[in-house]
């Protein structure tokens, strides 16, 4: 996307350290009005810290962020008025109904009674929770709770919505609901900063993307440009048995034998063919020599995950883990 408007969010040289751990290291990017910007990276990459700084909850050791021209370190409250925050955790009260939750947070937003009513109806419509608004949140499914979490972030008509891993821990159908809701918001012109370690979500929603690892941006730009960083690389996915995945020595032998980076993942091996698919026969021979079954293997076109793999030599997602603690 080409955008000639002034950026609405400017992240400039952010640096944040916790003890000896550098969470964010000289991070800079800009987001234009109406854009959906993706922050992609594995757990611990520094995405949540970055959003924490943008939302004025974490003070950076260095650098600054401006939102709509207001510095989050100097004019925190003015900047916060332009932001809607959807934290990774379910920041809501399960012992209250959705309406009670929304009313409470709307009051803290400073909305007046009539406006509260109007906006609650609006955000319920966006998130599709109208029918369950008077149910206690405790009775909600995981996906409904996530949608309510987003609905609260939408109160006050923020100019910029920060979404921190909004689909963690929910089933694919609920995930689809949320992605569609976010897409609708983007289509209506809302600026969105979306963090995830699911590359397919970022690819589905975002026009521009930053890929982060260990607090650093390792790739940044429009989606097609970042994808191109993978060059000719493709990913060979080979189903793997638990026996092999749980045998570090066998995996180590395989890694040493292969002329390409290998990443064991959930129930499969991912091998980046940096020279393209013509490298496949050589690799397959080695796999057969190591008694790896090739049943169900497939070659994938380059995507953000391929980029991440080729740049860092590791997968975006932790092996078999959906836990998120970045």
């Amino acid at each position: 996307m080409t955008n000639h408007a002034d950026p609405i969010v400017v992240v400039d040289g952010l640096f944040k350290q916790y003890g000896k751990v550098t969470a964010v290291n000289n991070l800079s990017f800009i987001v234009y009005p109406g854009e959906t910007f993706g922050l992609l990276g594995p757990n611990g990459a520094g995405k949540t810290t970055t959003l924490g700084i943008i939302s004025g909850l974490i003070r950076p050791d260095n650098g600054d962020v401006t939102v709509g021209g207001f510095s989050v370190t100097k004019d925190t409250q003015k900047a916060q008025r332009l932001l809607g925050v959807v934290p990774q955790g379910l920041a809501l009260y399960e012992d209250l109904t959705a309406r009670q939750n929304l009313t409470y947070f709307a009051r803290l937003r400073g909305l007046h009674q009539a406006e509260i009513k109007r906006q609650i109806a609006q955000v319920l419509e966006i998130t599709g929770l109208e029918d369950a608004v008077d149910q206690k949140v405790r009775k909600y499914s995981g996906g409904m709770k996530r949608r309510l979490n987003i609905a609260i972030g939408l109160l006050g008509n923020p100019k910029v919505l920060l979404l921190d891993e909004p689909t963690v821990g929910i089933d694919p159908q609920a995930r689809r609901h949320i992605l569609d809701a976010v897409r609708r918001l983007a289509d209506n012109g809302m600026t969105i900063i979306y963090t995830s370690h699911y590359m397919e979500e970022v690819e589905y929603l975002c026009e521009r993307v930053s890929i982060m690892d260990h607090g650093l941006i390792i790739a940044q730009g429009p989606l097609y440009e970042v994808r191109a960083l993978a060059g000719d690389s493709v990913v060979l996915r080979v189903p793997a048995t638990d026996e092999l995945l749980n045998d570090p020595e066998a995996l180590d032998r395989l890694k040493k034998a292969l002329p390409a980076p290998l990443e064991p993942s959930h129930a499969e091996l991912r091998i980046i063919l940096t020279k393209g698919s013509e490298q496949a026969p050589e690799i397959l021979n080695i796999l057969v020599e190591h008694q790896v079954s090739l049943n169900g293997m497939q070659i994938e076109a380059p995507n953000l995950e391929t980029v991440f793999l080729s740049l860092t030599g590791k997968a975006l997602r932790d092996n078999g883990s959906e836990a998120s603690a970045s």
Binding site: Q80, P87, Q88, G89, A91, Y93, F105, L108, G156
Partner: peptide, 12 residues
């Protein structure tokens, strides 16, 4: 739960 963070993001 992170609710405090959300409340603070509202300027409280």
């Amino acid at each position: 739960s992170g609710t405090f963070g959300r409340i603070r993001s509202f300027g409280v």
